[in-house]
Design a protein around this nucleic acid. Structure first.
Lengths: 142, 142
DNA sequence: GTCTTACTTGAAGCGCGGTTCAAGTCAAGG
DNA sequence: CCTTGACTTGAACCGCGCTTCAAGTAAGAC
């Protein structure tokens, strides 16, 4: 009762992912076919949910290795929970940065300052301290 | 009066970027030394502002090519303004996605559902339509 | 039976954003 | 003058996240 298995082409169509990407994800251990029809992979429909999750995580900036960690971790693993919470915090930072960038772009698209990149209002979005040319000890990781 | 030129090592230290990255950015046309002391690049301190902008844009997910476009565009170019506004809109979408991911992670870090990735509350963050296994025409670009 | 067509495989390749390397230069210090 | 050491160069290399390729296979239509 459901028995509706999907082949890789169908999954590709429905998710918008390339078949090669699905095979790649399989190699990474993210998904697995329910079986084969001849050589062809047959997927249960719930693979679509899993792929939606993977795509979302990928688009949110998680690396393949991180996603693998989340998907493969033992259920209930407290360390996993901690990592997830940690990631949520980092996402907060990412969101804040993107919001600053968005605000800067909004200003830029309306601002008439001549060399746009020299507009002090624009620049203020990137360096909290006004126009001073000083910059000390920025520990930013590279 | 200021004459305080910085060499590449100093700029690297102050920005947290590698010297190789600075040379790379120069090759891309993002920055230029004010002069040379022998072979050594000498930068005016305002290069730090420009680098802050570049780093921020990079961290906000802009490609090198996009940043180049923004930096090199003719000042006042109306097409540039339009592109900036367009980017701001896309950033909105990115922010929204990141917020959904953040909410999902927050839930996940507290949720006791056994195979975590199967938690319906968790999944709901990724697929607007509840538990249905259907998925039609997702045009998502790959 | 044979054709078509979408799949299969492993290996190689690609674009991005730099980093690393080998060999060389040169300003400053002693 | 000689050494030191941070700089210089172009070219090669790297990790990521896939894509592309060449060669092969099998399900379903005719």
């Amino acid at each position: 009762m459901d028995g509706e298995l999907l082949d890789i082409g169908e999954v590709a169509r429905r998710t918008g992912l390339a078949a090669s990407a699905l095979r790649y994800y399989e190699k990474q251990g993210f998904i697995a076919p329910a079986g084969r029809n001849g050589l062809r992979r047959s997927y249960r429909p719930d693979v679509l949910d899993r792929l939606a999750l993977i795509v979302c995580a990928r688009d949110a900036g998680f690396t393949i290795a991180e996603i693998a960690g989340f998907l493969r971790a033992a259920p209930g693993d407290p360390e996993l929970r901690a990592r997830l919470a940690d990631k949520a915090v980092r996402l907060e930072d990412d969101i804040a940065r993107l919001e600053r960038m968005r605000d800067a772009l909004r200003h830029a698209s309306a601002c008439a300052h001549e060399p746009l990149v020299e507009c002090p209002d624009f620049k203020r979005h990137f360096r909290p301290d006004g126009g001073g040319q000083s910059a000390s000890e920025r520990p930013s990781r590279q």
